[in-house]
């Protein structure tokens, strides 16, 4: 089951940048690439907890601002020699609006 929630306008997120959504299970970074692709990732690097939302976005990857781990935003997997992954969440663009799947975000509060 999915439940997409309208969280913002596309233009609220800078190209090659990100904005943060606060949720019950922590912050989620919503990224916008140079080509207006959207990705939603847990905003916490598995290495030392760095905010990925502040990383440099290049192609469909983001580099953590603290120690330069690189994550493929498609999969959430760390690239290169580093091992680890961040949770990804479904997000989509519809008529200039950013829709985030909130199904899994409420899970913890329900438990």
């Amino acid at each position: 089951m999915t439940a997409f929630l309208d969280i913002a306008a596309l233009d609220d997120i800078p190209r090659q940048g990100a904005r943060v959504v606060k949720t019950m299970i922590g912050c989620i970074a919503v990224f916008r690439t140079a080509e207006d692709q959207l990705f939603a990732l847990e905003d916490r690097c598995p290495h030392k907890g760095g905010p990925l939302s502040e990383g440099i976005v290049h192609g469909t990857s983001v580099t953590c601002p603290l120690h330069a781990w690189v994550f493929d935003m498609n999969t959430g997997q760390a690239q290169g020699a580093d091992e680890g992954a961040v949770q990804t969440y479904p997000v989509r663009l519809e008529a200039g609006r950013v829709l985030l799947d909130v199904t899994r975000l409420a899970r913890r509060s329900a438990a």
Binding site: A8, I13, R19, V21, K22, M24, V30, V102, S109
Partner: peptide, 11 residues
């Protein structure tokens, strides 16, 4: 600031 705050909604 965060672009959205879903903590209230989820509660």
């Amino acid at each position: 600031a965060p672009i959205a705050d879903l903590t209230l909604r989820a509660a």
